[in-house]
Design a protein around this nucleic acid. Structure first.
Lengths: 147, 147
DNA sequence: ATAAAAAACGCAACCAAGTTGCATTTATTT
DNA sequence: AAATAAATGCAACTTGGTTGCGTTTTTTAT
């Protein structure tokens, strides 16, 4: 373990490390991402902060987090902005690597990363210059299926 | 060829066959779908009719067409409503069968059906009750790549 | 062919999600 | 600690789509 490079993983310093301004709200927001460990929509965030924070601030914070490789967009059936933490050193400010499908639950609207489901090889795509794949499955997650 | 069941494929009668009211506008709209032979957004349609038609009418017509198995939604990178004709007896009012991926061009925003790209088998989805798959590829189509 | 019923249309108003400009406050840099 | 840069909040705006309702057109039943 290198004690210099990546030892202090306390959440507060993550912002500074990524080059994001360490404001009161942003610190709490990154904390929320780490503690909830699920994808978050703007609405989730506004509710969590009891609407004490302006939605513009939320939007701008999310864009900043995304640009600095801290979070990434995940698909959502309702076409709203939804973000997940970037994990496993997959992402950087330069490029996000999310080469896996997503599952969206109709009931709880949660988005799950399907790490096991990789994209198909680029086949029978003649005539198309493919830049990006998106694979999403929709249905009910284990938790919601019970009820 | 059975002359009774499906002979008169003139576009005008398609609406009646599907149980959709045969109004002036709807006849022109289904004609536009058949003649352009590509996916259409609400904006495409409004422009085609030089904004002489009310957008509400467009939205309601599209919903009606969809409910009667004439057209189906296709994905769009800009998250707007976009529709394609249902072809090859794939669709009915009861169920739409579009078990294939789609390609969306960044440049012309056109959505293409990738008939050759079927969805992966339901694998490694443990804990998820999958109802629907969506596979989209994005990039540049042949036409736009040239320029 | 026509009257009654049903569906489509257009308008205006509305809604939700997200964006922009600008003045103020808070962080960061030096 | 002062200068600079970035974040915040407010209000106003934009885009894409929806709803209610009175009027017109289409369909159905006679």
């Amino acid at each position: 373990m290198n004690s210099k490079t990546h030892n202090h993983l306390d959440i507060g310093s993550i912002l500074s490390e990524k080059g994001i301004s360490r404001t009161n709200f942003r610190t709490k927001l990154v904390n929320y991402f780490y503690s909830s460990n699920k994808s978050l929509s703007v609405d989730d965030i506004l509710k969590y902060f009891n609407n004490s924070i302006n939605k513009v601030t939320v939007y701008r914070s999310l864009v900043s987090f995304e640009n600095n490789g801290l979070i990434h967009k995940v698909p959502d059936t309702n076409n709203l902005m939804r973000y997940s933490l970037c994990r496993k050193e997959e992402c950087s400010p330069i490029s996000h690597n999310h080469n896996h499908g997503h599952f969206i639950c109709y009931s709880c609207n949660q988005t799950f990363c399907l790490e096991g489901v990789k994209y198909p090889e680029i086949i029978s795509m003649k005539g198309f210059y493919v830049k990006e794949f998106k694979l999403t499955a929709e249905g009910y997650c284990k938790e919601c299926y019970k009820n």
